[in-house]
């Protein structure tokens, strides 16, 4: 599977990019975050994040499809 990953805020700083393409055998956001956390050294635990797939909030156990855009959302701080 090939995914487009977009990063914001502290995750973008730690990944060193705002977007990347990622190839993996994994097809669940929760497992994917663990893999990316090991790769990039993300300090935020998954319990602090929300996940969005193709521009909408999604479940951590959603079955991902090839080509999906996935965003792990750090705690927001607007306003």
């Amino acid at each position: 599977m090939k995914y487009t990953l977009r990063y914001f805020a502290s995750l973008a700083d730690q990944a060193g990019c705002a977007e990347e393409t990622w190839e993996t055998a994994l097809s669940e956001p929760r497992a994917l975050y663990a893999e990316l956390r090991a790769r990039h050294g993300f300090t935020l635990d998954a319990s602090r994040l929300r996940v969005a797939v193709n521009g909408e909030f999604a479940d951590w156990h959603l079955a991902l499809a090839d080509g999906d855009e996935i965003v792990f959302l750090p705690p927001v701080s607007g306003g």
């Binding site: 914001f8 805020a9 959302l73 705690p75 927001v76 701080s77 306003g79």
Partner: peptide, 24 residues
Amino acid sequence: EVKLRVPIWKNEHYADGESGWLHP
């Protein structure tokens, strides 16, 4: 609700040259 839910992030830049992303 906007402060709790809308995916917007604030990065503060401080006088000492550091910066940091904030929680809600």
